[in-house]
Design a protein around this nucleic acid. Structure first.
Length: 708
DNA sequence: AATTGTTCGATTTTT
DNA sequence: TCGAACAATT
C-alpha cells in the first residue's frame, strides 16, 4: 500500500516518509538520501491531504539547503512558495519578528546586523564604557554576548562572580541598550527575541502551535540550545516534530551546536519512531569501510553503519611527502593525471583542516596552470564597497542606525573628522539620542556645515526614494553619495565599481514578499551574505576546508595534511570531546568522495614561520590497512617532484637522533624528533602522538629510533 | 588623509 | 612566515 511518491525509495526511506503524525527522529548517514526523505515527506504530507501548506514549517541552517528543499518540493507538485514556512532558523525568526514587531518590542524599521556589524557595535560599546580593548578583546566580548544569547541568557541574568565577568556583563548590558536605541538586531537576537516573543505571549504561542501541525528540522545535530528551545515552544500538543540529523556529522560544537539535543529530543518527547538511513548512494565500498572504521572509535554515538550495493572500488591512496611543498607538487601531478583521464576538474576537491594550508596549494596550482576555486572567501555582501552602499540604504531606512551612520558619514571623505565625530557622540550621549539626531541639531563645531550637508544628502535620498523602484533607489544612492565617483578615481576601483553595478542587479532581481522593498532587501543582504559557490558549469578544482565540504560530494577527493597536530588539530586533542569532534570531521571528509580518495601528509611543514615535523595522523592508523594503497611506501624520493623542493633532512647530530626521525619512548610511546640542543649530552624535543611535545635528556631517555 | 611602519597572532564558521 | 589591523608619520 505505498504511495507513488515513495516508488523510488528504499524501505527505510519509505518508512520515514510515511510515518504517522507523531514525533520522529531520522538518523541519516552521509549520502543516505536525507534531503530526499525530507522533501518527499513534505510532498507526501501535502499530497495525501494530511496538512495544507500553511500547517507546515520546515527549518534548515543554510539558505542553500532551504532553497534546495523548496526547489525539490515545487518540482514534485505545484505550490505557491509564498506563505510556505520553509527557511533557515534565522530567516523564519526574522519573518515572525517582522509580523509581530510591536509585540516583540521592536520598531517597524529594525535592521539586522551581520557579525561584522556586530563586532563594530561591540567596539563602540567598549569605547563608551572605557573598557580596555587589550583586556577585553572585542571578539571575546562578542563571543561572550552571543554565547549567552544562545543559551537564552539576557545580560541582567548573567552570573558574574568575578570582576572580569562583571565587566563583560556590563558590556553586554550596554550593548543591549545600544541595539535597542538604534533599532538593530544581531543574528542571535533574531532567535532569542522570537523565542521570548512566543514565551511571553500566550495568545501568539497558541496561534502558532495550533497552526503548525508538522515541524521538520534538517541537520538537527547542528542545533544549539536556543534553537531547540524555540522548536519546543513552537511545537504544541497537536504538532509532530520530524528531526533529521546525523550525530556522526556533528562538527560545529565549537560554535554552540549541541548534539545532545538528539538524545534530549528522544527523551523529551518519548520519541517512538527512530529510523536509521544507512544505505549510502554516494561512495564505493572501500571508502565507506574506511569511514565506518574511523568513526567506530568514537564512544559517544547513537550508532549507525553505512553500507552500499556498489562494489569495493579502488583502494584509498596514501601519499607521504617530505615537505608541504612536496605534498602540493603531488597534488598537482595527480590532478593533472586525473584530468587526462577525463575527470571533470569541478568534480575534484582538495580538502584541508585549516585555511592556512590553501596558500601553498594555490601557488602550486597556479604554477601548473590548473584552474581552481577557493570556497569561503569574502562574500558579496561582505565586501567593503557593498557594505558602504548598504550603510547609506540603512540610514535611509532608519536614521537611528548609528552603526550605519558612522560607517559612511565621512566616506567618501567630506571633511568630517574624528574631532567632529567626538562632538557629535558627546551630544548624542548627553541627550540620549542617536548620532543622526545630534547631527540634525547642528552643534558640530567648525564642521557644522559639512555635517549639515551630510544630513541634507541623506534626507534628499530618503525623499527621492519614496515610491521609487528599488534598483533606481540603489543607483541614486550610489551617485548621490559619491561612492561611484570615489571608486572611479581609485586605482584598483574597477572591480569595486563592477560590484556596485552588481548590487543594482541584485536589487532589480530581488522579489520581496514585503510591501517595504528596501527593508526586505536589507534584511536579505544580512541574512544571505551572498553566495560564494562555484558558478555552475565552471570547471575548476574545488579547494575548501573540511567544514565547508560538508554536504558536498566529488568524484575524487584529496584530503591533505593528515598529520598529528594538524588533523586532529593540536588544540583539540587535550579534551576527549575535542578529539571525537575531530574524528567526526575526518568521517565527513572521507565520505565526500564518490570514487577515489587520496590521503596525503607531509613529514615537515612550515607553520608560523617555523618548520614543524609531524607524524601520520592517528586517524590514518584507524583505517584498515587492506583498504590503503601506499603510493610511496619506503619511497624513493628521487621519483617524486617533491625532492627538488623538499629540504634535506637535518644532519644527524652525534647522538644519532635526527630532526624528523620517528622514535619510541618506553613511557610516552611513539613520537617524532622536532628539536635538539647540546649534542650527545644535551636534550631533544620529541612530539609524542599521545603526550604532545616533551624535552628529554638524550643520555637518559631510552629513545629507540624507528624506521620510517 | 594617505602612506608607511609595527605589532600580533595563527582551527574550524552560518546566519 | 605572512597577512591583517592598527599606530605613527608626512
Amino acid at each position: 500500500m505505498s504511495h507513488p511518491l515513495t516508488a523510488y525509495l528504499n524501505p527505510q526511506q519509505a518508512l520515514a516518509v510515511q510515518l504517522p503524525d507523531e514525533h520522529a527522529l531520522i538518523l541519516a548517514g552521509a549520502g543516505s538520501g536525507k534531503t530526499r526523505v525530507l522533501t518527499t515527506r513534505i510532498a507526501w504530507l501535502f499530497a495525501t491531504g494530511r496538512v495544507g501548506p500553511a500547517a507546515l514549517l520546515a527549518v534548515t541552517f543554510t539558505n542553500k539547503a532551504a532553497k534546495e528543499m523548496l526547489a525539490r518540493i515545487t518540482a514534485m507538485m505545484p505550490l505557491n512558495p509564498r506563505g510556505l514556512w520553509i527557511g533557515t532558523f534565522h530567516g523564519l525568526c526574522h519573518r515572525m519578528l517582522r509580523l509581530h514587531h510591536r509585540d516583540a518590542g521592536l520598531p517597524a524599521t529594525f535592521v539586522i546586523l551581520d557579525s561584522q556589524d556586530q563586532l563594530a557595535a561591540v567596539k563602540r560599546v567598549l569605547k563608551a564604557l572605557t573598557l580596555n580593548e587589550e583586556r577585553y578583546p572585542p571578539r571575546a566580548v562578542q563571543h561572550f554576548i552571543n554565547g549567552h544569547k544562545e543559551n537564552g541568557v539576557r545580560a541582567a541574568q548573567v552570573q558574574a562572580r568575578d570582576e572580569y565577568t562583571r565587566h563583560l556583563q556590563q558590556a553586554y548590558l550596554e550593548y543591549e541598550v545600544q541595539c535597542r536605541r538604534e533599532g538593530v538586531v544581531d543574528f542571535a537576537e533574531l532567535l532569542l527575541a522570537s523565542y521570548e516573543l512566543l514565551q511571553g505571549n500566550e495568545a501568539l504561542r497558541a496561534h502558532y502551535q495550533q497552526r503548525f501541525k508538522h515541524i521538520l528540522v534538517d541537520e538537527f545535530q547542528d542545533t544549539n540550545r536556543l534553537q531547540y528551545a524555540w522548536l519546543k515552544l513552537l511545537a504544541g500538543p497537536q504538532s509532530s516534530l520530524f528531526a533529521v540529523g546525523d550525530d556522526d556529522q556533528s562538527i560545529y560544537a565549537f560554535r554552540g551546536a549541541n548534539v545532545g539535543n538528539m538524545q534530549d529530543f528522544q527523551r523529551d518527547y518519548a520519541v517512538r519512531h527512530v529510523i536509521r538511513l544507512e544505505q549510502n548512494y554516494r561512495s564505493h565500498g572501500n571508502i565507506l569501510e574506511a569511514a565506518n572504521a574511523v568513526i567506530s572509535h568514537n564512544r559517544e554515538r547513537l550508532g549507525k553503519n553505512l553500507w552500499t550495493e556498489e562494489s569495493a572500488g579502488e583502494p584509498i591512496r596514501v601519499f607521504e611527502a617530505l615537505s608541504d611543498h612536496g605534498e602540493a607538487d603531488f597534488l598537482v601531478d595527480e590532478i593533472g593525471q586525473l584530468r587526462r583521464d577525463g575527470i571533470e576538474l569541478g568534480d575534484v576537491a582538495v580538502l584541508y583542516r585549516s585555511n592556512a594550508q590553501s596558500r601553498l596549494i594555490e601557488h602550486a596550482l597556479v604554477q601548473a596552470g590548473l584552474p581552481y576555486r577557493v570556497y569561503g572567501g569574502l562574500r558579496f555582501y561582505e565586501r567593503q564597497e557593498i557594505k558602504h552602499a548598504l550603510a547609506y540604504l540603512r540610514l535611509v531606512a532608519n536614521q537611528e542606525d548609528d552603526s550605519a551612520l558612522l560607517r559612511i558619514i565621512n566616506f567618501p571623505t567630506r571633511g568630517i573628522g574624528n574631532r567632529t565625530l567626538d562632538i557629535l557622540q558627546e551630544t548624542a550621549r548627553g541627550t540620549g539620542t542617536s548620532l543622526w539626531q545630534a547631527a540634525c541639531s547642528g552643534g558640530a563645531g567648525r564642521s557644522a556645515a559639512a555635517v549639515g550637508r551630510f544630513v541634507q544628502l541623506v534626507e534628499r535620498m530618503r525623499q527621492l526614494g519614496q515610491g521609487m523602484p528599488l534598483p533606481e533607489l540603489v543607483s541614486l544612492v550610489l551617485d548621490q553619495s559619491g561612492l561611484r565617483e570615489h571608486y572611479r578615481s581609485e586605482k584598483e576601483g574597477e572591480e569595486r565599481l563592477a560590484n556596485l553595478d552588481e548590487l543594482i542587479n541584485a536589487a532589480a532581481g530581488f522579489v520581496s514578499e514585503d510591501e517595504n522593498d528596501l527593508q526586505a532587501f536589507l534584511a536579505n543582504a544580512s541574512l544571505e551574505g551572498g553566495e560564494h559557490e562555484a558558478r555552475p558549469g565552471e570547471t575548476a578544482v574545488q579547494l575548501m576546508t573540511v567544514h565547508a565540504a560538508k554536504g558536498l560530494e566529488f568524484h575524487s577527493v584529496f584530503l591533505t595534511g593528515v598529520e598529528e597536530g594538524l588533523f586532529p588539530h593540536e588544540n583539540s586533542v587535550s579534551e576527549p570531546k575535542g578529539l571525537e569532534e575531530e574524528r567526526r570531521l575526518m568521517y565527513v571528509a572521507i565520505t565526500r568522495a564518490r570514487r577515489r580518495l587520496y590521503l596525503s601528509l607531509a613529514q615537515s611543514r612550515m607553520l608560523h614561520g617555523q618548520t614543524r615535523y609531524s607524524i601520520a595522523s592517528r586517524f590514518l592508523d584507524e583505517i584498515p590497512q587492506q583498504l590503503l594503497k601506499f603510493l610511496n611506501r619506503g619511497y624513493a624520493p628521487q621519483t617524486f617532484a617533491a625532492q627538488a623542493t623538499a629540504p634535506a633532512r637535518a644532519q644527524a647530530p652525534a647522538h644519532g637522533l635526527a630532526l624528523g626521525m620517528s622514535v619510541r619512548h618506553p613511557k610516552f610511546g611513539i613520537g617524532v624528533v622536532t628539536d635538539h640542543e647540546g649534542g650527545a649530552t644535551g636534550n631533544v624535543q620529541v612530539n609524542f602522538r599521545e603526550h604532545g611535545p616533551k624535552w628529554l635528556a638524550v643520555a637518559y631517555a631510552k629513545l629507540e629510533p624507528l624506521p620510517d
